[in-house]
Each structure stands twice: as C-alpha cells, then as structure tokens.
Simulated scan of single mutants.
Amino acid sequence: MSKTFLRRLIAVVSLLGMPMMATAFETTATAAYVYDQSTGTVLLSKNAQEPLPPASMSKLMTIYMAFEAVTSGRLNVDEELSVSSHAASFGGSSMFLDTTDRVRVEDLLRGAIIQSGNDATVVLAEALSPDGTEAGFARLMTERAAQLGMRNSNFVNASGWPAIGHRMSMEDLGILTDRLISDFPTFYPLFAEEEFAFDGRVPSNTRNRNPVLSMGLGADGLKTGHTQEAGYGFVGSAKQGDRRIIWVITGLDSAEARREESIRIVNWAFRQFAEQEVATAGTQIATADVWMGAAPSVGLTVAEDLTLLVPALNQGNITADVVYTGPIEAPIAAGQHLGELVITFDELPEKRIPLVADADVARGGFGTRLRTAALVLWQKFGPVPGDAASEGA
C-alpha cells in the first residue's frame, strides 16, 4: 500500500529570496575536491573519487592516527621514541634523525607536519604498529581509513613514499581533513605553525611548506605533497568569518601552480557562495498523509535550523522536493524521521535534509479504523451495492 510521494515546494524555494547561480570553476589540477565544512556542501568534485598517488599528503592519515593515540593515552606527547635504522634511512624531506636519537612525540608530530619528515612519520608508525613495522601500520591505516568512510584509499607505507598500490582519492583526503579539524581541535593549530627548527640540525628545512599560510586568506593548514608520479598537490583549509572550506588538489606541474590554484580556489569558494537560513526547527515545511491515525496528516519539519550554502551571483534554477513513503502508519512520535527535503541547485550537488514529524499522531479509535476499512473496500471493489451515494440519491 505504501508509495513514495514527491511534492514540489515553491514555498521553500521562495524562502531563499536571493540569486542562485555561481560561475563554474575550472581547475587546472588533475583531480580536485572543494568542501564547505560549515554547511557540509561539496563545491567542486573533479576526478575526486579516483585513487591516485597522494605523495606526502598521505602523512595526514598517520598524523590522524597519532592524534588518536595521544588522545586515548597510547602515546604521550612528552614520551621519547627511538629511531630505527629503517626510519633513519629515508631521504627526501626529513628531520635528519639517526639511530642514536630519542625524540619526543610532540617533536615528531611537528616534524611530520611542518618539516614533512619521512623519518618522523615512520618513527610514529613503527611505535603504533601492531607488529612494530611500517608495513604493519600501513595495513592498520587502510582499515582505519575504511572505518572513517574513506572508500578509495590503500596504504603501503606511512609517509607517502612512492610505492605500487599506495593510493588515496582527493575526496578521501577531504574526508580525512574534515575529521582532523573536527576531532582534534586542540592539535589542529600545529598545522598553522610556520617554523620548526628541531635542535637546529636542518636549517634548510624549518619552514612550513604551506604555500598560502601567511597570505591573509584565513589559511591554517594542512599538507603539501610532491613526487614525480603525483605532481604537486596540496590539502588546504581556510576559515573566513564563520565559514571554513577544505580543498584538495593534485597533479599540478609546479609549486607555483599549486600556490596560484590554491589562491584561486579560496577566493572563489568564499566570494561566489553565501550562507542563507532556509528554515528553523519546528517550522512546518509540508504535510504527509497518515494511515489509521487520529489525524489525517502530520506536519514535516527539519530537526535543526537549516542553513544552506547558495551561489551568490546571477539568477539560476533551484528546486525543492519533499520525498516520503506514505501514507505513514500511526502512531507517529514527534521528531520521528519520516522523509527528506531534496534541494537541487544549478552548479551544486543536490542536498538531502532529513524531515521529521512536528507532532505526535496517536493511532485512531474504532471509528477511524472503520472508516479506513470502508475506504479500502471502496478502493478495492468499488461502491457497495445499495449505497445511496453511489446511486445518485
């Protein structure tokens, strides 16, 4: 008996009351992902689900798991870790650790974040690995990534050193960045530190590689990456006012192109979109038919105040649909999830917002059940013989 109902809502659309279309952004990156964290809106997705070599951007996964370990007490920021010959053997970006060193966890975290130290990352990985090896930790990274909803990531090592099968999608890096910012607000400021001179031994590698960190754009993280295979990439985040955006790019042909593309993305994301309050919790947006209830319908509302990110320029198209499967059988409790508000913009992915009942609806009494039974018979068999109404009386 239940059917899926779709109702177009002109009233909800008119609440927006502003122009609706932004100019499409054309990026020179091979793959890109731009996400407005404040409203949960994907602003740009180009080859974003394709698994690609992430270079040092995959260090963010090791860093995330190290933050988890410190938070849970498995590691202590003042704890000193030894450096294996394997960790000390890495070239590329480095803290220049050797096997005689014992290094504080906090220094290793700064070394991985600011200096992009391959050796620092591997020391952390080996300390947290179930078998004490980097390979064992990489397997754990892959498992943890899947738990976080990262569907296109596979790790072979902890640092992003080029390896067959070591892959992440730009969307996955965006998901990971969202979690780093949300889950670890105490540690996240480490990404905005501009310099880390670990005991003065690497004067040429003390500056944060973030290309837009000090440009007045609100940028405060996160991680660059570069290998010959991957090209130049960057995972960035910036906050202006109450809005925060996350962007991930890869496949650029130079560090300068990476910097310029990041500036373009930040300017576009903040200037071409604006937040708009659409509905407050408890405000009835639509109604749904009720089956066997003390009332024939129930109001649908959003559970929380609804703010959407909308394009700020030009006039475009927007539709808002209420979708639910009904009629909905009573009893119904206020706050019960009953359907979705599906909003579709030009140039943006559709947005699906849960809708809940705005009031209780009790199950109907004997009279309600009798009328419902009569209605079912009418719909199934037609007019009952002798019914005066059916005879035109």
Rank of each mutant, 00 (worst) to 15 (best):
M1N: 02
I10Y: 07
V12P: 01
V13T: 06
M20V: 11
F25N: 03
A29Q: 08
T41W: 04
P54W: 11
S56W: 14
A66G: 09
A69E: 08
S72I: 09
L75K: 03
N76P: 01
A88I: 06
F90T: 02
L97G: 10
T100L: 14
R110P: 01
G111C: 01
G111D: 00
I114V: 15
V122P: 01
V122W: 05
L124N: 03
G132A: 14
G136L: 08
M141A: 02
M141S: 01
F155I: 08
V156F: 10
A163Q: 07
I164H: 07
D178C: 11
S182M: 07
L190V: 10
D199R: 15
T206A: 07
T206C: 09
P211R: 00
S214Q: 15
Q228S: 10
G233A: 08
G241W: 12
D242S: 14
I245D: 00
I245F: 08
I245S: 07
A257D: 12
R259S: 08
E261C: 02
V266S: 09
V266G: 09
W268V: 14
E275H: 12
E277F: 03
V278P: 03
T287E: 05
P311C: 04
L313D: 01
V322N: 03
P327E: 05
G335A: 14
L338F: 14
L341G: 02
V342D: 03
L348T: 09
V356N: 06
L370F: 15
L377P: 00
Q379W: 14
Q379F: 11
V384D: 09
P385Y: 06
A389S: 14
G392C: 13
